[in-house]
Amino acid sequence: MDTVWGDNVAQNIAFYLIAAIMVGAAIKVVTSKNVVHAALYLVAVLIGMAGQFILLGAEFIAATQLLVYVGAIVVLFLFGIMLTRAQVGSDPDVDTTAAQRTTGGFVAFILLVVMGYAIYGTEGLSETKLPEERVQTIAEVSDSIFSTYLVPFEAISVLLLAALIGAIVLARRD
C-alpha cells in the first residue's frame, strides 16, 4: 500500500463506485414519476453520501448523516407524501412542461460547466491530494462547537426551536 492516497486503489474504487450509484440515484430522484420511488432513491443518495464522508475520514458526520437524514428527514418526506395523498404509482403530473424542463436542464448544464471550469481551471487544485491522516475525532468536533462556534451553535438551537414551533403552528388544524 502506497503512502500517497491518490494511489490507494481500493479507496479509489470505492469512491467511484459509490459516486456512480449516487449520481444514478440522484438522476432518478429528479426524473422518477413516482413520488415514493423518488423518496427511496433519495435514501440511496443520502446513504452514499454517508459513505463518502467515511472515505473523507469524517465518521461523526457520516453517523449524523445517517441518523438525521436517513432516519428522520426521509421519514418526514414519506409522511408528507402520505398526508398529501400523492398518487401511489406513476403520476405524470409531477413534472413541468417539456419547455420548462428544457430550461431547467439548460440552466443546470450551464452551472455544471461553470463549476467544472472553476474546479479544473484553478491552478494546483487538480493535483491536490487528500492527506493521509484524516480521521476526525468527535472530541475535536465537540471542542470546536463548544468554543469557537458556540454562538452559531446556540443560534442553530434557537432556529430548530423556531422551526419546531413554526411547523406545529402551520400544520395544526384549528
Binding site: 440522484a26 430522484v29 403530473d93 409531477v94 413541468t96 431547467g104 436542464g105 443546470a108
Partner: peptide, 14 residues
C-alpha cells in the same frame, strides 16, 4: 449532485 438538484427544483411541479 448540485446541478441535478437544481434541475430537480426547476423541472418538478410536485
Amino acid at each position: 449532485l448540485f446541478c441535478i438538484g437544481v434541475y430537480g427544483v426547476l423541472a418538478r411541479r410536485n
